[in-house]
Design a protein around this nucleic acid. Structure first.
Lengths: 170, 170
DNA sequence: CAATTAGTTCAAGTTTTTTTGAACTACGGG
DNA sequence: CCCGTAGTTCAAAAAAACTTGAACTAATTG
């Protein structure tokens, strides 16, 4: 665990004021990204802690349940936002954050953005089929035009992602 | 209102199959963006309807409450995603969607992204002050380094937005 | 102006999402 | 092997987000 020894912890949370603020910062951040609060808490604490922390540390320091911590860590690992700290002979696993933007953005895109883009594309094909069945000519043209537009939105989205990754990741 | 006359409406929703699918498509889309379902329903129906629709039309066709429709339309207007249709002498207001990506992306960035980036920046300054009070030298350096890193994340975010806007908006 | 209808507001209700915690599996050391 | 602890799972509880609907304001029209 290793609290930074230079700051007292508050009664309520078990965190130093700095830790509390940073955790709050990340809670807000993940909320914007549509991820659950606990992910922000966990990542935030790992981010501002000089040493890796174990699941139990997180439970104790953040005052969250083992279940939350376990699931939160799993998601963060999937996102590539935390890694196991290497080289602790102990039985329990310690975690450290990825602090480079690149893997964070990459993971978010891979896990949260791409799947939706992809499933969106296949839904569009179905949409087009339905629209194509419209018997009235003028209506059909209108519908197909709108669906084309959606198609072009998605294409642009797909083009933007690599650029995003390149700009954000180093 | 003006249902496209060439497709029967289903019992449950008052929408044609195509409308239903498109609405569903946008419901999923706004969910990814972290916006409420009703926004997707309203925008989706406006998007696929050849003519502008009034608040009452939306209530009737989508089966949502007047309150939802009113608030949903307000948010969509704020985002620049719908506009009042011009030139209907009627008392009630008719709405049409913005179908260009540019205002949509621009509005989303302006309303949903920028504010968080900005408030994030000011929170960082506070964070830095707290970290700077750390008496242990090594800890302080570590904390300040991490906060610097956050700073640089935010800066990159700020740089990316204009590029995003340029790429997506025409 | 009174009546009627368009639209807004917000407290209460509903739905969805997240968190909890207890039961479970799995591993490792004595 | 058996005990103790690390970590997972998932049904139920709690919290958060969204929607409803009734009371309201505002604006038009006969």
């Amino acid at each position: 665990m290793d609290l930074p020894s230079t700051q007292a912890e508050t009664e309520t949370t078990g965190l130093t004021p700095l830790q509390e603020q940073v955790v709050g910062y990340f809670v807000d951040l993940v909320r914007v990204l549509g991820l659950p609060r606990s992910l922000g808490e966990i990542y935030g604490l790992l981010f501002i802690n000089p040493d890796p922390l174990s699941l139990d540390d997180l439970v104790r320091l953040l005052g969250i349940s083992k279940g939350s911590a376990s699931q939160g860590l799993r998601t963060l690992r999937t996102l590539g936002a935390v890694k196991e700290a290497d080289g602790n002979g102990d039985r329990r696993t310690y975690y450290q954050p990825s602090v480079e933007l690149k893997p964070l953005v990459g993971g978010f895109i891979r896990e949260q953005v791409r799947p939706h883009l992809d499933s969106g594309k296949s839904k569009l094909r179905i949409l087009e089929e339905i629209a194509d069945k419209t018997s009235d000519h003028e209506d059909r043209e209108f519908f197909l035009d709108r669906i084309n537009r959606l198609d072009s939105w998605m294409k642009r989205g797909g083009q933007v992602l690599p650029v995003l990754k390149k700009m954000l990741g180093q």
